[in-house]
Each structure stands twice: as C-alpha cells, then as structure tokens.
Amino acid sequence: MRIDTSGLSCPEPVLKTKKALKDKPAYIEVIVDNTAALQNVSRFLKSQKYEITTEDFLIKGSK
C-alpha cells in the first residue's frame, strides 16, 4: 500500500497514515514532502510497531 501526503498541512500526513493502517497492512509506503512530516509519520509508524526505513521523502514501514 502506498499513500501520498505531499503538500498537506499538519497533522494530515499522520492522519492519512493512521487511516491507511486501519486494515493493518503488513507493508506501507508513505510519501511526504517535508522534514516535519517525515519525522511525524516515522514517529507514528514506530508507535504502531512498524519497522521503518526512509529514502529521501519516502517512508517504508513493515511489520
């Protein structure tokens, strides 16, 4: 699953990610376009027990 949160203001990138996690995907990719959203989404995915790796503004989370 991949979601694109670029251009959205706080806290929508995290909110969109939260909604995408409703179906408990084993793998998710989140595109962000700024460092604040990168940190916020990464922090949220970690809090939901996802292992994350980042490439620029692409966050990959897996369980």
Binding site: V14, K18, Q39, F44
Partner: peptide, 19 residues
C-alpha cells in the same frame, strides 16, 4: 523542533503523541 502550541494538545488527542 517544530514547536507548536496547538500541536501539543492536538497530537495527544489524535495520536497519543506527546512530543
């Protein structure tokens, strides 16, 4: 630090995020 007064309470309400 992205300090934000409204974000403090908002993120607790939305995500239980205390940063």
């Amino acid at each position: 630090t992205r300090l934000c007064m409204v974000g403090g309470i908002r993120d607790i309400a939305l995500f239980r995020d205390y940063y």
